[in-house]
Design a protein around this nucleic acid. Structure first.
Lengths: 224, 224
DNA sequence: TGAAGAAGTGAACAACTATTCAGACTGAAT
DNA sequence: ATTCAGTCTGAATAGTTGTTCACTTCTTCA
C-alpha cells in the first residue's frame, strides 16, 4: 500500500524540473523575461502548462529560481577569474572584466535578470542577485584598499556604482548597438573596465595596464 | 452654427490636461509607476476615467509625456548648474552633483521614470530621456577633455556609465536605506560624485576639491 | 430660447495570461 | 492482474486594468 518513489522516478522528476528551468532560461535568453510565459515554457519543456505548477508554485517562483541560478553561475565565474589573478588589483580588474564579458555575451538574459519589467514580483531575488555580486566586488575593492593600492572608501557604495555603470553602459537602452562586432565589443569591455578601475582610485597609467592584462585571458570568452 | 472654442474653454481644457498630468506625476512620486493607473489618476484629477482618454490616446502616451516632462525639468536643472560653474571640470562636477541630488530628493519618481517595470511600452520616451541627459553629460565631459583636464575617451560611453553608476548607487535596489538622514545623503552624493569624476580621469586630489565645491551650492537642495 | 456640436461620464467590455482542477494516465506494490 | 497513490493534462476559470461607447451635461451661437 505504501507507494514509494523508485529511484528511476526520482530521477525523472528531477530531470523534468531542470528541463522546465532550462526552458525558462532559453526563453529568457532568446526573448527576455517577457518570453518567459508558462504556456510557451511548458511547450519547450515538453510538458503541459499544469505540470509546471507541480514543480513551481507560481511563475514568480519559477523566475526567481531562474534568477538565482544565473546569478550563482555568474558569481562563481567572477570568483574563478579573480582568484586566478596575481594580486588584489588584478583580481578586481579580472572581476570587472568578467562581469562585462558575461553580460555582453548574454545581453537579453542579463537584461531580463537585472532590470527588464516583469509582471510578477521578483524584486527579492533580483535584490539577492545584485547583493551577492556587488558584495563580491566590494570584497575585491576592499582587498585592494587594504593592500594600499586604492584610497579608503565606502566599498559597498563603490561596488554598487560600478555594477550600475557596467550594466547601463553595456546592456542598458543606451548601450552601443554595434557590440556584435568582436573588436568593438572588446573595446567596450576595456573602456568600461578602465572607467571602473579609475572610479575606485586606480591611477590612470596603472589602470590601463591592468585592463590589458585582464582582457587578455577573457578574449576567448569574448569570441564565444 | 460654427461652434468655436471660447478663450475660457481653451483655458479650461489646458488646465484639465495639465491637471491629469500632475495627478499622474503625484501618483508616480508617491507610489512609483505602478500607482499610475487610469482610474486613480482620474480621481486625483477630478475627472472620470473616460475623460482621461479625451486628453491622452492611451496610458502609454500619458506616461510617456510624464517621462518627457520630468526629463525636461531635470535637463534644464543640470544645464543651469553646469553653466553657473567657473570651468569645464567644475561644470561636469556640478552636473553630476545635480543629477545625484535631484534623483535622491525624488527617489520613487526617479525610479519610476528610469527603470521601474511598467505594463505599457514606454521604452521610447525612456530612451529619449536617457539620451538627452547622457548627451548633456557627454558634452560636459568632452569640454573637460578639450580643456586638457581629462584624458581623451569615448565620452558617450563614459556618460552612459556615469548615469548608470549614479542611478544604481542612489535609487537602485541596493541603494543605502539611510538616505533620509541629510548628512548621510550628502555623504552619498559626495561619494558618488567623487567616483564619477575619478572614473573619467580626474586626478584624485583635484576631484576631491571639485566635489566639495560642487556640493556646496547644492546643500540647500539636499535639505529640501 | 433652442438647436447642435463638444466635452464628460462611468458602467460594461476586452484582452491577456497565470492558475486551477476534474479526469486520464503511469507505474509501484501486492 | 489489480489496485491506487502519484503524476500529468489542457480546457476552463479568474482577476486585473486599459479602453470603449451610448448617454448625459455643458457651451456656443442664431
Amino acid at each position: 500500500m505504501v507507494y514509494r518513489r523508485t529511484h528511476q522516478v526520482v530521477k525523472r522528476l528531477a530531470a523534468r524540473r531542470s528541463a522546465i528551468l532550462s526552458a525558462a532560461r532559453d526563453a529568457a535568453a532568446a526573448g527576455g523575461m517577457a518570453a518567459v510565459q508558462i504556456a510557451p515554457v511548458a511547450v519547450r519543456a515538453n510538458v503541459a502548462a499544469g505540470t509546471v505548477y507541480r514543480y513551481f508554485p507560481s511563475k514568480a517562483e519559477l523566475i526567481s529560481e531562474l534568477i538565482t541560478e544565473v546569478s550563482r553561475d555568474e558569481l562563481s565565474a567572477i570568483r574563478r577569474a579573480a582568484e586566478a589573478a596575481p594580486g588584489p588589483s588584478s583580481a578586481l580588474a579580472a572581476a570587472v572584466t568578467t562581469i562585462a564579458v558575461h553580460v555582453l555575451s548574454q545581453r537579453k538574459l542579463a537584461w531580463g535578470i537585472l532590470a527588464e519589467p516583469v509582471d510578477v514580483d521578483v524584486t527579492a531575488s533580483r535584490l539577492a542577485s545584485r547583493r551577492d555580486i556587488s558584495g563580491e566586488l566590494a570584497m575585491r575593492i576592499d582587498a585592494a584598499v587594504r593592500a594600499g593600492h586604492l584610497p579608503a572608501q565606502d566599498t559597498a557604495l563603490a561596488a554598487t556604482a560600478l555594477l550600475g555603470a557596467l550594466h547601463e553602459a553595456l546592456v542598458g537602452p543606451l548601450a552601443p548597438s554595434n557590440l556584435d562586432d568582436p573588436i568593438k565589443l572588446r573595446d567596450a569591455v576595456q573602456t568600461v573596465t578602465l572607467l571602473a578601475l579609475r572610479a575606485v582610485g586606480v591611477m590612470d597609467a596603472r589602470a590601463r595596464g591592468l585592463v590589458v592584462q585582464a582582457t587578455t585571458p577573457a578574449k576567448a570568452l569574448v569570441g564565444a
